[in-house]
């Protein structure tokens, strides 16, 4: 189980902002989300989208604990 948070255009695309998902790794989590919503799954793999586990950017896979927070971060635009 991990808490998943979506930001920016990803949350409009998915129609939700935050939920719990059963997954032991980031790869398994992506797979579970893509199985439910193929459009979101493709967007999470899209250009410039980064994943953060417990507020640290992760490249590749990572193990998840039940308390993990996974955030998907589309291209950033401040100022």
């Amino acid at each position: 189980m991990a808490r998943v948070r979506l930001f920016g255009p990803l949350r409009d695309l998915a129609g939700w902002r935050e939920r719990e998902v059963e997954a032991a790794s980031l790869a398994a989590l992506r797979h579970a989300l893509a199985r439910e919503d193929a459009v979101l799954g493709a967007a999470l793999d899209g250009p410039g989208v980064q994943a953060a586990v417990d507020r640290t950017i992760v490249r590749g896979d990572a193990a998840l604990s039940p308390a993990s927070e996974v955030a998907f971060l589309p291209p950033m635009s401040g100022g």
Binding site: F7, M76, G79
Partner: peptide, 14 residues
């Protein structure tokens, strides 16, 4: 600072 805030700080703008 501003150049990095524009494209590398975690904000999303609608």
């Amino acid at each position: 600072l501003m150049d990095f805030l524009k494209s590398r700080a975690p904000f999303w703008k609608k």
